[in-house]
Each structure stands twice: as C-alpha cells, then as structure tokens.
C-alpha cells in the first residue's frame, strides 16, 4: 500500500556488532513509527512476522481504540462479526480466530464502549437480559439477594438503594429487546447500572477476603496499608472508569450467581484456536441445559458475542 511491492526494504541502521554477543535480532530493524502513528496498514513487502510482539500489541491496542471510539454508543446494536474481521484484515492471526468463532456459530457482536466500564456494562447487559427473558419470580429473588450482599458487606444504604431500585425496576418492566438497549445507551442510567455492579463486586470481594486476597497479591503488592484489599476496592473497584481485572470479573460473576463464558481473542494462538473460559461455574457443577452467554475478550476490552442476531 505504501510501497511498490518491488521496492527495497529500508536500509538497516548501523548496529553495534560484537563477536562475543549473541545475535538477537536477525531481521533488519524497522522503525515502528510510520506504521503505528497511523492506521496500522501493513506495507505489501512486510510480513506480520516482521513485527515484534510489542509492536503487535500496540497495533492491537490502536485497533481497539478505533474499533471502540470515544464517539460510539455505550452499547452498539448487534453487528455481524464480519465487521470485526474487516478491522483485523491485516492481522491474520486475529482473522483466523474470528473465523473460528464464526464457524462455531458466533456471528454477532454487540460492542461495548471502551471507557473502563466495558466489563461491568457488558456483563450487566447479558445478566439483566437473561433475568428479564426468564421472567420468573425466581429471577426477582435472585436480584434482591444481591441487595443483601451489599447490606452484609456494611455498605451504607444510601449508596446502593437508588441504583438497586433502578435495576429492579428494569427487570420488573419486562423490556428485554429494544428498550433494554435504550436503557443501556442512556449515559446516566447505564452508569448507575454499572455503579450497582461495581458496588456488588466490591461487597463480594469484602465478604470473601480469604479467597480474594490470593488474587490480590498478583495484582499489586502494597504491604504498607493495613488492609490492602479495602484500598484496592476503593481505588480499583468502586469508582467508575477503572478497568476490571480477573479479580473483579470473578467476584462479580460469583456475586450474581451467574455463569458466563469468555472467549479470548488475542491473536496469539496457533491454528486460529479460540480459548473459552468459564466463569461462575464450579468445577463440580454440570453445565446447565442452556448455553451460557459469551463475552468476547480482547486484551483490555470486553464485548458481547452471540450466536443469533
């Protein structure tokens, strides 16, 4: 695209050579700037393998940002997965994985805005949609049980009452389709739902400290505070805009007593294979009759993946 296919590669810059040092880079160094500063279009004379892992990661992040622009809605209308494939057309490892998903029947993606709340928003959407669709007294019980979790964790009632009423009202209103989508695209309503999910996540971590302190040591080592988990909840769980790590994902799915599969689209598996991870399903549990909803994970971002539009 940028060069004729016949043109030579850029000359390699002078490098230090020493017979005593092993040769690490066996390809001429190429300055990443021209590719990364713009849309990552691969020049025809370059192969994807010419890029380092770090460069690939950066290109992926760039794509993510463009794919999830600041202008987009909080939750998109279902889109054909081919749109996603087109965005990755220069990254064959991603395309292979997207094809795998498509062949497994996952043909639709609902995009969630990449604003740091995407996991909470995506999970809340599929959770509430499922509650509303199942339309039973049991689903109302399930939801009201989450309020008990917040009370048990010692949260002040004023902190969770209003968002709880909002979420409960939504489930009772029985509006699964277009209306639910409308609700989730309305900035403030959508964010109150996210807020409820965040409080619930925080409460669940607090009530299961023994379990979660194991996770926590992997995330940060802050031994100076007497209760690092409390600080973690305050700084990285409760405030809006803070991305969810494994600990938050695990906690929220557990707190909702939900079961979700997460498909990992990372462009790093051989043969385009896609790994699915089950969350909220104990090792001994038999998988339910119905297939659990699926989130699509790209490093740093969550969307919703589904089989039918």
């Amino acid at each position: 695209m940028m060069n004729d296919s016949g043109s030579a590669k850029p000359p390699s810059p002078p490098r230090l050579r020493s017979a005593n040092l092993p040769e690490i880079v066996d390809r001429p160094y190429t300055d990443p700037e021209p590719f990364l500063s713009g849309h990552p279009i691969l020049p025809e004379d370059m192969d994807i393998n010419d890029f380092s892992l770090a460069q690939l990661h950066e290109m992926n992040q760039k794509l993510l940002e463009e794919s999830m622009g600041a202008e987009g809605p909080l939750i998109s209308w279902p889109e054909d997965i081919s749109a996603l494939r087109d965005e990755y057309s220069n990254l064959p490892d991603f395309v292979a994985q997207i094809n795998t998903l498509s062949n497994q029947g996952y043909r639709t993606i609902i995009r969630v805005k990449g604003d740091g709340d995407c996991f909470y928003r995506a999970l809340a959407f599929i959770y509430l949609r499922q509650l509303i669709c199942s339309a039973s007294a049991r689903s109302l019980d399930q939801l009201s049980a989450t309020k008990t979790v917040l009370a048990d964790a010692g949260f002040d009632e004023i902190a969770y009452d209003t968002p709880y009423d909002l979420v409960m009202g939504l489930v009772k209103s029985d509006s699964a389709g277009h209306e639910l989508w409308n609700t989730f695209t309305d900035q403030s309503t959508s964010n109150y739902i996210v807020m409820y999910m965040r409080l619930l996540t925080s409460a669940h971590i607090h009530l299961n400290q023994d379990f979660f302190s194991g996770f926590y040591q992997n995330i940060a080592s802050d031994s100076e505070t007497s209760n690092p988990l409390a600080k973690f909840r305050r700084q990285f769980v409760e405030p809006l805009g803070k991305e969810a790590d494994d600990i938050q994902v695990t906690a929220l799915v557990q707190a909702l007593k939900f079961h979700v599969k997460i498909a990992y689209l990372d462009g790093r598996s051989p043969n385009g294979q896609v790994n699915f991870h089950d969350f909220g399903l104990d090792a001994g549990d038999a998988p339910g009759n119905s297939e659990p909803p699926v989130l699509l994970y790209r490093p740093g971002h969550y969307d919703i993946l589904q089989k039918d539009a």
Binding site: F155, I158, A159, R198, L199, Q235, E238, L240, G241
Partner: peptide, 22 residues
C-alpha cells in the same frame, strides 16, 4: 476528586470520591 482526577498528584493514597461517599 475521582481517582482519575488528581490535580495535585499528592493524593494518590488518600480517600477518593466514589458513590459510597456522601
């Protein structure tokens, strides 16, 4: 101040705004 908004850069360790405040 929300955790992302730190005008003085000295407040990282202190209590921040979140919806549980009042």
């Amino acid at each position: 101040h929300t955790p992302g908004d730190d005008p003085t850069m000295y407040e990282q360790a202190s209590e921040r705004w979140s919806p549980v405040q009042s």
